[in-house]
Computed example of a mutant assay.
Amino acid sequence: MKNVLGFVAGASVLAACSHGLPPVAIEAAVETASVAGTGDAADDPAVWLAANPADSLIFGTDKDNGIYVYTMTGAEHAYLPEGRLNNVDVRYGFDVGDRLVDIAAASDRSNGGMAFFFIEPDTRAVSYVGALPVAGVVEPYGFCLYRSPVDDALYAFLSDKEPGTFVQYALDWDGVMVTADEVRRVTLGTISEGCVADDRTGRLYMNEENVGVWTMGAEPGDPIEPRQIAATDGREITADAEGAALLPRGESGGWLVVSSQGDNTYAVYDLETDAFVTRLQIVDAAIDGVTHTDGIDISAADLGPAFPDGALVVQDDENDTGGQNFKFVDLRAVIAAIETAAATD
């Protein structure tokens, strides 16, 4: 059931959810139609930036059926029913020999590995490349991509749901299919899903759902020494710690945003200090508010007239017309809320 909270008089700060720290209210600007899957179906979005910002696309998984691709108006651009896909991510300039394509990839529970899609930058055509089963992963769950600032190599991180093992793969192309060679793995201990890698700084952030947020180096030669930077303690994050996204500022600054699924909020952390900054909540307005979010993504690029400074995209478990869908938030509102909280800290 949707948890509707009122505004504190004279402020945009909401009453605290349970015993969590009070979140700041923001509103969705665009939403998609509900996905075809029933029940807990929609899961994770990823933003693809087009040369013409208004032509940018949002990928969103339906973990019963496949993947949707949406325009920045929330309209359906493509639907690819390619299996039980859970988490999705996007990178640019993947070399397939005769050309460079952009790539979307997802954790694939139907085939025990990863699914790959190509995006043609000039036409926005999205095509299914195929599924790549992997050994040593029982239930593919969380997923994120990483482009190394050291040598431009492309890597994938795929989590095995239990016991929360993240496996890193080096991705390549053999002329027919994307290849994935395991380079290392780290086990956090319990169910883990959301992850995001910072291509600027070479850091990986991983969410252990009932424990908290961990970070370690994303390079294959970095020590496997995860360090906890946030706890699922009911104050900053209420279980589950789900999606993770980066809001970059400059060469190394900005914020990590984590979906606090248990109380319908988003915890924000400073990327340079790991310090907690604030919490956000997407409330009812012209578009209904957001509850029980799984995956999230952020792009701080120009995404067209409605989102000139980027967007926060989130999964909503209870759309007001039924089913689950995705909501887009103007990143200007998100940045204003974060910067105000940081200035008053």
Rank of each mutant, 00 (worst) to 15 (best):
N319Y: 01
E339W: 11
E225M: 11
D316R: 13
A241T: 04
A337L: 05
G10A: 15
S148M: 07
L14W: 03
L100C: 02
Y266A: 01
G250D: 12
P53H: 09
N3G: 00
G74R: 09
F276A: 10
V150F: 08
Y92V: 07
R203F: 02
G175V: 09
M114D: 05
L271H: 07
V178I: 14
E272V: 15
N65V: 14
L312W: 10
V138E: 15
D294M: 08
T293K: 07
R84N: 12
D302Y: 07
H19F: 08
L145M: 14
Y266K: 03
F166R: 01
A78C: 08
V13N: 04
Q168D: 05
A342S: 13
A29W: 00
G6K: 11
A104N: 09
L280Q: 01
E219I: 01
A15C: 05
D172T: 13
G194R: 00
L100E: 12
P22H: 08
G189D: 09
A78G: 03
T201M: 08
K327E: 02
P23I: 02
Y70P: 01
D270F: 07
G243F: 02
V126H: 02
S56V: 08
A25Y: 03
P45M: 11
D151F: 07
P23M: 04
A46T: 10
F143Y: 13
T278K: 05
P220W: 01
D44N: 15
R279E: 03
G93L: 10
I298H: 05
G10H: 13
D302N: 15
L132N: 04
A286H: 11
V283Y: 00
A50F: 06
R279A: 02
I103G: 00
G194L: 00
D233P: 08
D330L: 02
A25V: 08
S127F: 00
N210D: 14
V150A: 13
L80W: 07
